[in-house]
Amino acid sequence: MYGEHMHRIFTLFAILVCFNSPGRAEPSDLRTELKKSTSQKVTRIIDGDTVILKDQTRVRLVGIQAPKLPLGRRGFKGWPLGFASKKYLSDLILDKYVTLYFGGQRQDRYGRALAHLFLEDGTWVQGEMLKAGMARVYSFADNRAIIPEMLQAEQEARRVSTGIWALAFYQPKDQQKSASFHNSFQLVRGTVTEVAKIRGTYYVNFGEDWRQDFTIVIKSRAARKFIKAGIDPTSYGGKTIEVRGWLKSYNGPMIEVTHPEQIMIIQ
Rank of each mutant, 00 (worst) to 15 (best):
T215N: 03
K36S: 07
R224S: 12
A223V: 12
Q171C: 02
K197M: 15
T57N: 09
K87S: 12
R60F: 09
L89V: 10
G133F: 00
K41G: 03
I45E: 04
D47L: 12
K173L: 06
L119N: 09
L34G: 08
A66P: 07
R158L: 01
I164R: 02
V192Q: 00
L71V: 00
F181Y: 15
G163N: 02
R44Q: 13
M134W: 06
V160D: 00
Y101P: 10
G75H: 02
G207K: 09
N143M: 06
T99P: 05
L12M: 09
M6Y: 13
T43H: 05
G238R: 05
G103V: 12
S184D: 13
G23D: 12
V125S: 02
A153C: 13
A153W: 01
G72I: 01
I64K: 00
F181N: 02
F185D: 10
G127N: 05
D232A: 12
I147W: 12
R221E: 14
G252P: 01
D142I: 08
T57R: 10
I46F: 08
K131H: 03
Q65I: 03
D209C: 03
Y250T: 04
R31H: 04
I45F: 02
T258W: 01
M1K: 14
G72L: 03
T38P: 00
K77V: 09
A14H: 12
T32C: 11
F226N: 04
K96P: 05
R244P: 00
R44K: 15
W210T: 04
R73A: 13
Y2K: 09
K225T: 13
S161A: 03
A66K: 01
L69Y: 06
G104Y: 11
I231Q: 07
A168R: 15
L151C: 03
G82Y: 06
Q105M: 11
K87T: 12
A115G: 09
I263E: 02
S21Q: 10
R199S: 13
L167I: 09
G230C: 03
I241E: 06
T38S: 12
M134P: 02
L94R: 11
G82D: 06
L114C: 09
R74K: 14
Y236R: 02
I216E: 01
D47R: 11
G3I: 03
S161L: 04
T191K: 15
A145Y: 07
K173Y: 01
Q152D: 09
M134C: 07
G245A: 07
K219F: 13
L16M: 10
R24W: 06
E149Y: 09
D29A: 15
K239E: 09
T162H: 00
Y138C: 08
M6K: 11
G230R: 06
I263K: 04
K248G: 02
Q56L: 14
A25M: 13
A168Q: 14
R109D: 06
I216K: 01
P253A: 10
L100A: 14
L16Y: 02
C18Y: 01
S220K: 15
K54G: 01
M129S: 01
M264Y: 01
K225D: 12
T38W: 02
G103C: 08
H116K: 10
E156M: 03
D213C: 04
I198N: 06
M134R: 08
I255A: 04
A153Q: 04
T191V: 14
F83E: 15
F83C: 01
